[in-house]
């Protein structure tokens, strides 16, 4: 997976080009590019220490494994998902959300907005990965849902889930910064800004995050393949923290590479 082996990943647009959406006609964008890149890199550096970020990633690893085991209910309880087995995707998401919120509340000393962004990114990634795996010709039953969740336990499926999670997280972090400064970027002085342009920009940022996070996709697959399937490890939050410290570092390097001139 390494940058060493891949060289440059595909990039529909590099960040300077994307940021130009927000500033008129190609005027200097370097500062904003630097800021957007740095806020993403800084967030990732801090995120690996955030208990909600780690718990979210851990649940994304363990929930499919619990769904694939014969003791699903006990498995869910062990992960902090309380109540009866979920009968629908919304019920599963609500239980997942509550489990993360409890961790967020317990982290009284160090809770920041990063934990909240990780929580929403994980919900989004899980819902997006599960939606196409549910039956479409009939109303999914609880058993259908369990099977769909269990199908995410393969190393390839986890790679996809982990990539979505990291991508949504960085996307939220970038908007956390950009949206606060929107009033300085849109308006007559900026000459070109409009609702349509902002939406095109948002789409380009989303793609930027999806593409940048591709870099950790294969690592995620290999990590789960080695630790769970080859070595039979029951993965703990500490294991996930170690995984995150590498995958996040890959993503930070990729973000830095994408701030180069296009």
């Amino acid at each position: 997976m390494g940058h060493q082996r891949l060289g440059k990943l595909p990039a529909h647009r590099l960040l300077p080009e994307i940021v130009r959406y927000l500033l008129d006609g190609g005027t200097p964008t370097a500062d904003l590019v630097d800021q957007v890149t740095e806020v993403g890199r800084d967030a990732l550096r801090r995120a690996v220490k955030d208990p909600v970020f780690i718990e979210a990633l851990w649940l994304l690893v363990r929930l499919p494994q619990a769904a694939g085991s014969s003791a699903f209910v006990d498995g869910l309880a062990a992960l902090g998902l309380k109540g009866r087995p979920p009968g629908s995707l919304p019920e599963l998401l609500a239980a997942f959300d509550s489990a993360l919120e409890r961790v967020q509340r317990r982290a009284a000393g160090g809770a920041t907005d990063l934990g909240e962004m990780a929580r929403q990114a994980a919900l989004s990634a899980l819902a997006e990965a599960l939606q196409p795996r549910l039956p479409v010709l009939w109303q999914p039953t609880a058993e259908d849902l369990r099977h769909s969740v269990a199908s995410l336990r393969s190393a390839d499926a986890f790679a996809d889930l982990a990539q979505r999670f990291h991508s949504r997280f960085v996307d939220r972090v970038i908007h956390y910064f950009i949206d606060r400064n929107l009033h300085r970027m849109i308006g007559p002085e900026r000459a070109t800004k409009s609702l349509n342009d902002v939406e095109a920009f948002n789409g380009a940022i989303r793609r930027h995050c999806d593409e940048a996070s591709l870099i950790m996709r294969a690592f995620a697959r290999d990590w789960l393949g080695k630790n769970f399937y080859r070595d039979g490890k029951a993965l703990t939050q500490d294991d996930v923290r170690r995984f995150a410290s590498y995958s996040v570092e890959k993503l930070r390097i990729e973000l830095a590479q994408r701030k180069g001139t296009s």
Partner: peptide, 30 residues
């Protein structure tokens, strides 16, 4: 603001994203 448009963005090909993912997924473990 609701109707103006400064730049018209040509979207990438429809299979652009799936190809990018497939490119990564074809990689064997190092």
């Amino acid at each position: 603001i609701s109707f103006a448009r400064n730049s018209v963005e040509a979207p990438p090909p429809a299979n652009y994203d799936s190809q990018a993912k497939a490119f990564i997924d074809r990689l064997a473990a190092p």
